[in-house]
Every structure is written in C-alpha cells, then in structure tokens.
Design a protein around this nucleic acid. Structure first.
Lengths: 248, 248
DNA sequence: TAGGGGAACTTGTACAAACAAGCGAGCACC
DNA sequence: GGTGCTCGCTTGTTTGTACAAGTTCCCCTA
C-alpha cells in the first residue's frame, strides 16, 4: 500500500524532471494541487515536503513554491551502498575482498560497535573497470558469521546481508574529509603515495539503533564526489573541526 | 512568534542532550507527549520530525521512537558561512581578501549565475591562528558592488551582505571531493604542492532562486570534515561520479 | 509619478477525528 | 518447550477546519 502523498509527490516530481515546471518557475498553489488531485491540503503539503527534502523545490511563507533544480537527491541506500548507487546510475562496477580476519576490537571500536571481537574486511571496488574505492570495514561480532559466508566477489554486501539474514541498514553517520594515500592505499588504488583521497568514515546501525559496522572508505580523487542540496532551516550536513570524534 | 512545535522540539532536544533519554532508549509515545505538552498529536509529530531531521531520533511504524545520538546536525547558515560555523563552535577565526577583480563570466559561470560580468574574490580563512581554507568565490554582477564595498578583513561576508543590502542566502548546492593542492593553494595554505585538500564547490541562491555566488573552497587536510547523519527514506547527500556538472 | 494602504492570495501552524499498518507481549494450543 | 495467534499499543496516513503570518499586486492618493 503506497501512500497517497507519495503518489502525488511522484507525479509532481515527474513533471519537474520532464520540464513541465522549469527551474525558477512557480509551482501551483496547494489549493490548486488539492483540487487537481482531489486530496486534502495536508496531504498535498506532505507531498511537496518530500520534494523539498529532495532539494527539488523551495518554499517560504506567503509566496508560491519555486522549482530549484532537477537533480534529485536520492535514497539512503545509494549513499550507503556503492553497488546500489552504481547500479542506479548505470555504471559498470565490481568489487572483491582483498583480505578479512577476526580480531579483538580496539577500545574505540568496542565503544562504537558494542562488540568485543570484530571482523575486519578489506574490499576493493571498481567503477567502469578502474579501481576507485578501498573499503576498510569492521563488522560487529553478531553479523561477522553472515559476512564471512558471503562470496569474495559479492557485488552488494548490503543486499546480500538482507537476503541472507534479513539485516537492514537503517541509520548511518558519516564523516567526510580528505587524506593522503598511504602505502597500501596507493598500491591497491594505483595512485602515488601521498596523493589525495576522499575519505568517508561511517557507522551504520539497524532500525533498533544497534551498530552493525564501522567503515573507512577511500575514493581515488576525481572518481567520485558527494553532492548535497540544502536550504535555510533544514539541512543535515555539518562541518567538523579536525579528527575529534572517530579518534583514529 | 515561535511555533509551538519548535518549543516542544527544543525541550525534547534538551532532554536528549542532557541524558534524560540516553542513546538507544525509547522516547515516550506521541500520545504521552501530547498529554504532557497539552498539544494535539499532529503538533507533537511535527516536533519529533524536527528531531528526526537533525538525526537525533529514528522511528518506524508500530514501534516507539528511539534515540540515535546526541550530536546535532545544525543549520544551513553553519554549512554556508565559515564565520557562523566557527563562531557557534567557539573557535577563533579570521579571514582576509587576497585579491579581487571584475572580469567577464566564462560560459559555465554565465550559465550558473545568469550574469555576463562577475566579481572574482580570493579569500584566505584561518582557524585557531592557522590558515585552513582558501575560497575562490565568483559573485553575480548584481551583488558585485555590495561585495566590493566590504572591508578586506570582513569576518562574515554572509552577515555583512545581509546587514548592507538585506541579501539572504537561502538555498545552496554543494559538491564535495578531494583534490591535490596547486601552486597557489600550496603557497597560501602552507602545504606542499600535490598534498590533499578537501574541496567544496557550491552555488548559492536567494529565496527566489536567483543565483548569487559560485565558489570553490579548499580546506587543508585534517582541519575540517563534513558530517552527515542519515536514515533510510530520507537523506539529501548523494555520490556523483567524476567532474560532470561543474565542468571546471 | 512615486509612495502608501489594503485586499487577495499563499504558505505556516494548530487542533480534532478516524482508520490503516506494523510491532511486541502474552496466551493458548500442540 | 516451542509455535502460532490474538490483542493492545504505537506510529503512519488522510481529511476537515480555523486562524496566523508573509507576499504580491492593484489602486488610490499626494
């Protein structure tokens, strides 16, 4: 059962992406939309709130909503899963496990994952045939077994874990910065030591807030960028000084 | 006039940050909160939606909301304005204009800013006495005059432009990646050529969707990181392949 | 012609009510 | 003892109404 406001949001989004509402133009008023879709104004408001969250439209009290852009911010899955992102954008991609081992958790890891022993996995991912991403992921003990049973060339770990044990990655915290490539980074990604890498460190949890994994992902410079669209009053991205929280 | 749901959100946020609702615990149900605050359930829902957008709590149908963390994602202003971010985090900071000049817009700039002539400004920003950020900003013609009238050591361009001409930066699109330092970057930031920099390119517009500026900001590695907390179904950050859109 | 006032329009906030859908605990049955 | 089911609780969706607050634009006046 899909919600009504989702359907309305889908239709309006299609209209924006197709150019029926060009960038900079005004959207119809809530009252007009309510009439057109035969829905209550509250339902229409929920629909346009979806579009606002995607960065497609902006609004301010008293004035009609305006179209801000046509590039849609996409799903959590695409930020979380390299495979889902690459696939939904039509890229050729691959990946393989370079190494994995169980070991005792460090103090910081134990605090982040709530787990005494962890499974550390090193994965190399490629895009359009080029190696672009090196993932150093640490899994909590309670998922380690399921991860170990995955094939080494598993395309999407996220999807495989969902299929195998019903595990859903629901929340994530991400820290993005730039670091020089170390010796191992350089060798596996095919760049010079010290060259720039885009680093994304993250901790992911289940619906219940239970930590699943902590990861240090490094992208070759020029291969991938993160994009965000924000507006006054609502945005989730923040600067942070230095290397405070993850304490690596 | 502050909205009721904002007040409720503030109170709940304080309770979370103070530890009254520890990470991983359940929030009271909407019905309980509605009773406690003598508000309708819809109003309470708006309040917790604020907290969810800040990444503090998560929710799923049928189960009580849970507390996810205590670090709050903050305002648009803090992402947009280095000064406002630094100040609200209690850092010492400074900045000065290294150079500025008017010139014809390039094709890409004309498309982004809708302006034939532009004002290019090079600013160096420091944090805790260290140079950390080099801003190369291109302003649309219609704000160029106001920007030129600002003092060279202006602390916050955003605030100064609001005070001077009532200009409000309302929407922004940001692209984040890593690049090697060029000769000028290296000299001004005090790092070696080719060392990693965290780059944030952005285009900012007014409430009406009118482009104001386009900027290429480069942070010294290790000085600043971007942080995001997201959840399934709602997040605005996206990966992008290569250097497609900004075409620099 | 320039400016002020105001009316109409539009989005934001708040309340109330009802039903749908998912979760979790406890109970009965095998 | 374990399995499955039901029931109550909780969040999600939708409608309707009313008023508040900000914007836009026209008209009237000086």
């Amino acid at each position: 059962m899909v919600a009504r406001y989702e359907l309305i949001a889908d239709e309006l989004r299609d209209e924006i992406l197709s150019g029926a509402h060009p960038v900079g133009s005004q959207l119809p008023s809530e009252a007009e939309l309510a009439g057109r879709f035969r829905a209550a104004r509250g339902t229409v408001r929920q629909a346009v709130a979806v579009l606002a969250a995607e960065g497609l439209v902006g609004s301010r009290q008293g004035a009609r909503r305006i179209v801000l852009g046509t590039t849609r911010s996409q799903s959590f899955a695409e930020l979380h899963s390299f495979a889902q992102w690459a696939r939904s954008n039509g890229y050729r991609f691959g990946g393989e496990v370079i190494g994995q081992r169980r070991r005792p958790a460090s103090g910081a890891e134990a605090a982040r994952l709530g787990s005494g022993e962890v499974l550390e996995v090193l994965r190399l991912r490629s895009l359009e045939g080029e190696p672009v991403l090196l993932e150093r992921t640490v899994y909590a003990e309670w998922v380690a077994g399921a991860v170990e049973r995955l094939p080494a060339d598993c395309e999407s770990v996220t999807e495989a874990l969902y299929a195998a044990v019903g595990l859903v990655f629901a929340y994530g915290e991400h820290l993005i910065d730039a670091v020089p490539a170390g010796a191992e980074d350089a060798r596996l990604l095919g760049v010079r030591r010290g060259s720039p890498l885009l680093r994304q460190r993250r901790v992911t949890t289940t619906h219940e807030g239970r930590p699943v994994e902590s990861s240090d992902d490094r992208y070759r410079a020029g291969s991938v960028a993160f994009s965000i669209r924000n507006s006054i009053g609502a945005n989730p991205l923040v600067r942070q000084a230095g290397d405070l929280r993850f304490g690596l």
